[in-house]
Design a protein around this nucleic acid. Sequence first.
DNA 1: AGGTTGATTCGATAACCCTCTAAACAAGGT
DNA 2: ACCTTGTTTAGAGGGTTATCGAATCAACCT
Lengths: 115, 115
Amino acid sequence: MTAVTIECCPPLTRGPLSEQDAVDLAALLKAVADPVRLRLLSMIGSHEGGEACVCDLTDAFDLTAPTISHHLKVLRTAGLIDGERRGTWVYYRVIPETVARLGAIFTPLVEPEQA
Amino acid sequence: MTAVTIECCPPLTRGPLSEQDAVDLAALLKAVADPVRLRLLSMIGSHEGGEACVCDLTDAFDLTAPTISHHLKVLRTAGLIDGERRGTWVYYRVIPETVARLGAIFTPLVEPEQA
DNA sequence: AGGTTGATTCGATAACCCTCTAAACAAGGT
DNA sequence: ACCTTGTTTAGAGGGTTATCGAATCAACCT
């Protein structure tokens, strides 16, 4: 639990975004700009142990397994999740740094509350 | 400048997202998941006076006026910006509440540091 | 009234993305 | 070896979206 202070405006509105930064950021945002992928991300992140098996995820949707697999690949390519095969099943976990990077764009800048 | 404490995980990973919430959120994210719109948003938000004329924005891109207008409409429909005509020109400004809502999804939850 | 400049709407085209089926790959059990 | 279950890859179809040119609307100026 860290104390911080909120100041001023989110990074996005602190100065004009460069074209390259905009392209990179948009790619990351596109990865989460889908209802299925948002739910996948939230299901994986909130699952006990911090990881979820693909089999768990597939059942929660009215979609075929290949479709879920496709969405997981998009999230993985974007660096939002990481997958590992252990025996029969593949387990995915969230990469919190990338999620935080997303939040930092739109959140009023916070600084550590210590001198 | 408000003091807060960071605790645990971002809302997205605190529990599974409902289908409706996911759809709403994805719509908002899709609005910003585009390089041109990200730059527009950042240019408007960082412009002096907190607002920018469409004429300023159009010049910064290698795109036609109708295309810029289209992107502005997407941002406006999503509730991220608001436009107002004053005389000859139309001025846009950022709606910070909506931007903050985006950030809150991915940012580790912060709580007011008082009690 | 007519003309000029700024901004949006309309209609069309091309690229992209979500979803599916079919097929392939991976691991375990009999 | 074979079959079953879990997961991914490949290819195709249908809908969405970005972009443009042309036309329209809005306000100002002479």
